[in-house]
Amino acid sequence: MDQLDQLEAQSVYILREAYRHFERLCMLWSIGKDSTVMLWLARKAFFGHVPFPLMHIDTSYKLPEMIAYRDRLAREFNLRMIVGADAAAVKEGRTFPLTQHLPDGDPRKLTRVQCCGILKRDALNSTLSGERQRQRLNLTTGVYEPDPDREPYHGVIAGVRADEEGSRSKERYFSPRDKSGTWDVGDQPPEFWNQFKTDYAPGTHVRIHPLLDWTELTIWEYIKRENIPVVSLYFDQGQGTRYRSLGCGPCQSPIRSNAKNLDDVIAELKSGQLRSIAERSGRLQDGKHGLEELRREGYM
């Protein structure tokens, strides 16, 4: 067994434990490379099937190519695809990009972190609980329709990696959240060997993290080995730039890179310019403690 085999075996084991213990289970899919690998691992775990819904929290600031790719894969893989979005916030202008022009000190002006709080954290928590109307993709027509199911989810699979940033390095594979989605990082349950927290009190939910042990490099090596389709935004299309990590358009910037394919990306990470530069350096909301605060309150 090589390292990728070991990582795959552990993730598959975790996914099967999650499916076994949580009747109301969903998987968060950000359309990025990590959660797409996670989706692929679910197909590994369940022999080509994905026996739970995929959930995407759409901020409306995702690049159009990501949305097209999402819907294409959903139909190709026969997924139960659910989308949650705070359309009202965007319509009413309560976002960072729409308040950017306001003068400093204007109470309506929102920071990047506040914007993430509304469009991602709050939208996620309310979509999971069922308070917010979910939209479900009709695989025959390709159209999103209101999902009649309003029941809360008790198990939520998320593709965070321990090497991404400080707070994620402290996560458990199975991480309980209280009624409001809050993560009590100071009092986490013990995790012995491969025995996980699979019993939960009514009203609480558990986040499940099958990718904790993966790194940016192993993710790309696995994408290559398995030939997993990824969005072309990760590659240089001739402009000399590419995205290293995908978030919302206004809060990320492409990096200078001539990596045009998987081999180039892997070489760049192993021995090239990215060998020792943090992956999320292009994500602008991550500054000191910003992401950690969001994560305690339920952010991925």
Binding site: A162, D163, G166, S169, K170
Partner: peptide, 18 residues
């Protein structure tokens, strides 16, 4: 990396690094 820990100067949880 976490605020609690820096305030108290002790490691609360198990951090993983490479």
């Amino acid at each position: 990396a976490l605020t609690d820990e820096q305030d108290q100067g002790i490691t609360i949880d198990t951090a993983r690094c490479f």
